[in-house]
């Protein structure tokens, strides 16, 4: 299969969807003239014009709010957040407007809006440019949240998000943009709400997503060397969470480790742990393990930043602890 970068995969998705439906357009800071900080919009304005690939003022609130308004008026906007951290600037638009409008107005409208948000730790970007905030949005009814871990998913999930009639937050890890991987030729969508069993196994279930999937798979390889067969699940979608895939895997392996780059406290791992504890505790042969960032903002200094990132060895140790 051909290999392209994660960034190119998202570009293909945008380009195909903009070609397919003239109601699709994209706006954000520095996307048209610059092509996006990570090159994820390069070439789009040449193809579709600056009327559909729009450089905005530095006004996150207006970017998202105008996206909502345009969606209500029949368009299918994609808005780019520049950095996921800046969602903090326009939280009212996310929390009180886009998430609630369809329900609160009794289903009179749809909200076909995609919010792209580059997240995660990269090159000492420090506290306000490094966060993984997906768990916030799991808590808000009305939103869908997707988070690809590889190039093929980056394309398929973005295309599905653009075709959704519900608001979708699309988190893309900054460290993934330059990574190459196989992507099938032609049109395809990855269904929202379905997790992917990236590697089958029988002794322990490791659930992860986004960049940490790569660490999880690396850990699974190491564990295989020790005779531990790990099943690795890529969540792909944070909301709605795919309970079915999680539960059937845990029923099989009876052991669960959840890994994410986001702060462990109140994270996606906490929700999954609670679901499994509520409904499947009798299946478990060992306590659930969660790996996530410590409860601190992301520090700047490389020596400190290193301490908040999860590596494969930590995942291996966590699995070893519950597989004794």
């Amino acid at each position: 299969m051909r290999e392209i970068t994660f960034s190119e995969a998202t570009l293909e998705a945008m380009s195909e969807e903009m070609q397919r439906d003239e109601k699709v357009f994209v706006m954000g800071e520095d996307i048209a003239r610059q092509g996006g900080i990570f090159g994820q919009f390069k070439g789009l304005p040449q193809k579709f014009g600056v009327e559909r690939v729009i450089d905005t003022p530095i006004s996150e609130t207006a970017i998202v709010g105008a996206g909502i308004g345009a969606a209500l008026a029949g368009m299918r906007p994609v808005v780019d957040m520049h950095f996921a951290d800046f969602v903090g600037v326009c939280m009212d638009e996310v929390l009180n407007q886009m998430a609630k409008i369809c329900y609160m107005f009794g289903g009179q409208c749809t909200m076909p809006l995609v919010m792209r948000a580059p997240d995660g730790i990269i090159r000492s970007a420090a506290a306000q440019h490094s966060q993984s905030l997906e768990a916030f949005f799991l808590h808000i009814p009305g939103l869908k949240v997707v988070i690809p871990s590889n190039t093929a998913d980056a394309k398929g999930l973005l295309k599905a998000a653009i075709r959704e009639d519900n608001p979708v937050l699309y988190f893309e890890h900054k460290a993934l943009f330059p990574l190459k991987g196989p992507v099938p030729e032609g049109e395809f969508c990855i269904p929202i709400g379905k997790a992917n069993i990236a590697k089958e196994g029988k002794d322990v279930t490791i659930i992860s997503y986004s960049l940490m999937m790569h660490r999880a798979l690396e850990a699974a390889d190491k564990l295989a060397g020790q005779g531990i067969s790990a099943e690795v699940i890529d969540l792909r979608t944070i909301s709605p969470i795919d309970k079915e895939t999680i539960f059937s895997s845990v029923a099989k392996t009876k052991r669960l480790v959840i890994v994410h780059e986001a702060v462990k406290t109140g994270g996606v791992g906490a929700e999954i742990s609670a679901l499994v504890a509520e409904e499947m505790i009798d299946y478990l042969d060992a306590p659930i393990k969660r790996l996530g960032a410590p409860f601190v903002p992301i520090p700047f200094s490389p020596s400190l930043e290193r301490l908040v990132k999860i590596n494969a060895d930590q995942i291996v140790s966590a699995v070893e602890e519950i597989c004794k």
């Binding site: 709010g65 909502i68 308004g69 345009a70 008026a73 906007p77």
Partner: peptide
């Protein structure tokens, strides 16, 4: 901002 978006559309 919603009005601005509707006008943009």
């Amino acid at each position: 901002t919603l009005a601005v978006g509707a006008a943009l559309a």
